[in-house]
Nucleic acid binder design. Structure first.
Lengths: 339, 339
DNA sequence: TTCGGCAACGGAAACGCTTCCGAATGAGTC
DNA sequence: GACTCATTCGGAAGCGTTTCCGTTGCCGAA
């Protein structure tokens, strides 16, 4: 494989095209100040030698890195992966490379913000769906690059996300409309987050919906667990053990809801006859399992974040806070309570 | 934010530590030939100035890029994302950066191999779980870097994967052991792959198991669909419409199996009493849905691939073909057929 | 005919590091 | 005490671009 021909560089191209390196550089970068015929000649030679500029040298001499860091917890969860998918698509279409940083767990996270491995390597960093603590913000800003966020609304950066409270209300109002009055909530916290708080919007929606419907809230009906299906199942078991169990469950996410479903099935309860269940997200498996949920456009959030970043990088005008709409998707897991 | 102090470089560090740049470089890179006291002094100064070497300059002057490209289809699927997660973890622990290339769809893919956007940017490329066509191999090799694969066994590169046929046999033998004789297969093909073939190992296992058990195979019982839950559901519907339906279904993956489960439930059939269902993968939701499946260690495959790559990059000895074991996980979706 | 001005192009200085090679220093040996 | 040898260190030449200036050549205007 080409061990005979040493690595070719721009000087080679320039020489072969009969121009100076300066001109070659300009031609290759589509700058103006080059005659069209010259540009074509240079490009042709480059193509012929299958030459590509050295990003290192290019960057060193000036110009941007052409890379952006994406910081993401939990790659393997559908939500994060899908967000990433959308983001990557638009960034790569713009010829930006994506440097992936998976910060999983509190320790990993601390390490990331402390060492800043992306330092000097990227033009921007995108924080995917997790709140950045103040101390961490200070570290991040040390990098001196553009920062944006997507999928969560907890940072002072340009941001695209859903309105958690609205989403929660869509689910809750649906349950209330169906006639449920004893509604449980399974709140999910991310164990890796510093504060260990469930998304406040989704919890607020619960209380607000109850209040607006004149239903007293009962802390017995609220279970807070770490995010996850198994945890959702445990929570459901606890909720079932009450003297007066709920007739419906409002879960913070589909995965948690699916956990609850397992417990219900094992307990021999029928869904939706004996218990209604709702999730949030519209995970692909929600459809398969016939789960009523609130859909959020995940991939689109990633794409919007990508476009936002491109705009900022190009110095163009852009929205700095985009809220995408959510939508109630009624399936077979909800019905009026048995009278 | 530090707009007053111009960017500091190694020369600054060297000067301040009272050494030459040569020494500073050696100290910072942990090379030997530097007195321990000197090294500490340099490191201290670097820390104090919060200096990090410019990767571009470093690379330009010689040495590796410290980056590896990971090529992956379908990031948002659990399997791929988890593989990626494992891989990223070990690479980053070794201070290598991960450049993510999502090639989704035949067109995207062609573009990737044609333009080779990772060219001159990485020390290695890891191909995650998809077969590389010969033409594509030739393009890849143009990059002149190390190449390895993980999660699939279709390329001539160092590789870590499971044995698809063994995995399939574990599921099939379980069904046969339970007494099933009319066993259907739902084979899943990846629509983005050129050949559009289902994993041959998993299909072979089906036929081999039947043969070994002396059960004649019946092509009516084989459905081939694109990968996905909805597609699995469709396939199941077709299988049910036969004059003599199966008593068990062997699906190529958990997602497909879950789709089949939906169809069965909607049809009012009970699992496992009326129909046994098996998947492959042990997707997190398989546990939640009580699906019997064959577990493969996905994250671990990613990690192993990462370690393999590190070894190769360091020029150390290493296995070039690792096959990780799979394991039958019996849950509630399989039982003997009704007599 | 001369000259101002403009478009196209070239020379060469950065950019920030690694590494080859040689110099200096100090310890160990006879 | 002279000499060898290992260890530590510094000078300086690249690495492959971009970009600042300046030069050249040409056209139209005076």
């Amino acid at each position: 494989m080409a061990q005979n021909s040493r690595k070719i560089n721009m000087a080679d191209v320039a020489r072969r095209a009969g121009v100076s390196m300066a001109t070659a550089s300009r031609a290759l970068n589509n700058e103006n100040g080059v005659a069209e015929s010259t540009r074509r000649r240079v490009l042709a030679v480059a193509e012929e030698l299958s030459y590509v500029v050295s990003p290192e040298a290019s960057r060193l001499a000036g110009g941007a890195t052409g890379r952006v860091a994406v910081v993401v917890p939990h790659i393997s969860r559908w939500f994060f992966a899908t967000l990433l998918e959308g983001l990557e698509a638009v960034l790569r279409a713009a010829d930006l490379d994506v440097l992936l940083y998976h910060v999983d767990g509190i320790e990993d996270r601390h390490d990331f913000f402390h060492r800043l491995p992306a330092r000097r390597k990227v033009d921007a960093v995108v924080v995917l769906a997790f709140p950045v603590a103040e101390e961490e913000q200070r570290r991040l800003e040390l990098m001196g690059v553009t920062i944006i966020a997507a999928g969560g609304q907890h940072a002072p950066y340009p941001n695209v996300c859903i309105d958690d409270e609205t989403a929660g209300r869509q689910a809750m109002d649906h349950l209330i409309f169906l006639g449920h009055r004893r509604i449980a909530m399974i709140a999910a916290v991310d164990p890796d987050q510093p504060g260990e708080l469930a998304p406040p919007g989704r919890s607020n929606a619960y209380y607000a919906a109850l209040r607006d419907a004149g239903i007293p809230s009962d802390e017995q009906l609220v279970a807070t667990v770490n995010w996850g299906g198994a945890e959702g199942a445990d929570a459901m078991a606890r909720l079932l053990s009450q003297r007066e169990p709920p007739t419906a469950v409002y879960a913070h996410s589909d995965e948690v809801a699916l956990g609850a479903v397992r417990t219900l099935r094992r307990a021999g309860l029928r869904i939706p006859e004996d218990m209604s269940v709702t999730g949030i997200d519209d995970h692909p498996l929600a459809e398969l399992t016939d789960l009523t949920t609130v859909r959020q456009p995940v991939r689109q959030q990633g794409e919007l974040a990508g476009r936002m970043l491109l705009n900022i990088l190009r110095g163009e005008e852009t929205d700095h806070d985009v809220v995408v709409p959510t939508q109630l998707v009624i399936r077979g897991s909800t019905a009026p309570p048995r009278s």
